[in-house]
């Protein structure tokens, strides 16, 4: 065998680079054992490439040490329990391969490891999945909190809107009423009738607006004595000396807060207020006559 020719064929470099098939590798090893020159050449080539690799050495980030050792330990432990079945298989296979394959990094040992790789390689991925799940849960919780807060805000807003519209409606109604009252006061068709206090209540004062054409009657209290419990003021129209019920005064009216439209009165010459039981009576109690006035 021409050893020089063999050396120059480049097969030793390919051996060292790990690109030969198992059969080719075994062949190279056999020839190297037989020829010292080739053996030395092969050793030199491997040493040269190892040196080249070593020259590229670069310390990994310090934090990696912990991570790698932890992942490795986890993978090693995961492998450990099913020692009877898996470990023996994992061991038996590489050994078998080692005897047939010349160098351990040949394809076959890798095969043996590949089966275990997921456990190890997935440690990182599993960690990432766990982190993802945690993030997802966190995000879901955040979303839930934000959602419930949104719902709460919406409810509050609805309450506020309802209140606001109710207030607006109330105000609008009140305003309408005032407008109406103002219209009454300004309307020349309404005749103001001052009702003055009787000797029993000299400071009492009220005013009735009477529209003879539409028969409408409004009462506007300036000052009336406070009522005893269970009593209410009743307005009477006096037509030809006969008292006619014109309706009961609401508390707000009696207190002077607003003017109140009373029952329509067909004809009258005078108006008067008496104190009666709540709900009113058919004929006035003359002893409680508080104010009276003629048209």
């Amino acid at each position: 065998m021409d050893t020089q020719e063999y050396i120059e064929s480049g097969i030793l470099e390919e051996y060292a680079l790990g690109v030969l098939s198992e059969v080719e590798r075994a062949n190279v090893e056999r020839i190297a054992r037989e020829h010292l020159v080739i053996n030395q050449e092969l050793k030199d080539i491997i040493a040269g490439l190892d040196g080249y690799a070593q020259a590229h050495a670069l310390p990994p980030p310090p934090a990696l040490r912990e991570r790698v050792l932890e992942a490795w330990q986890q993978a090693a432990r995961e492998m450990a329990p099913p020692q009877k079945a898996a470990a023996t298989a994992a061991e038996a296979l590489p050994r078998m391969v080692a005897s047939s394959a010349p160098m351990p990094e040949a394809a076959a040992p890798r095969e043996a490891v590949v089966r275990q790789m997921p456990a190890a390689a997935n440690a990182g991925r599993r960690w990432m999945i766990a982190a993802s799940v945690a993030l997802l849960l966190l995000s879901a919780l955040g979303n839930y909190l934000l959602y419930s807060r949104l719902k709460e805000t919406e409810a509050n807003l609805q309450v506020a809107q309802t209140e606001q519209s109710r207030y607006a409606a109330t105000q609008k109604a009140a305003l309408n009423e005032r407008d109406q009252q103002l219209a009454v006061l300004r309307n020349e068709a309404f005749q103001p009738v001052d009702l003055k206090g009787t000797p029993k209540a000299p400071d009492a004062l009220a005013r009735v607006y009477y529209n003879a054409r539409t028969k409408a009657v409004y009462v506007d209290v300036r000052n009336l004595p406070a009522l005893p419990e269970g009593k209410q003021y009743q307005l009477w129209a006096l037509d030809n000396g006969q008292p006619v019920d014109a309706g009961m005064l609401a508390n707000a009216t009696a207190a002077g807060d607003s003017i109140q439209q009373m029952k329509n009165i067909a004809s009258a010459q005078a108006f008067a207020l008496t104190v009666e039981d709540i709900g009113g009576v058919v004929s006035p109690t003359m002893s409680t006559l508080t104010v009276v006035g003629n048209i």
Partner: peptide, 23 residues
């Protein structure tokens, strides 16, 4: 970094196949 981690695990598992007499 990932590959180095994989490599460590792989070296551990494949170690029985390492033959010191061959390199």
């Amino acid at each position: 970094e990932d590959v180095l981690q994989e490599a460590m695990v792989k070296i551990w598992h494949a170690f029985p196949s390492y033959d010191a007499s061959k390199g």
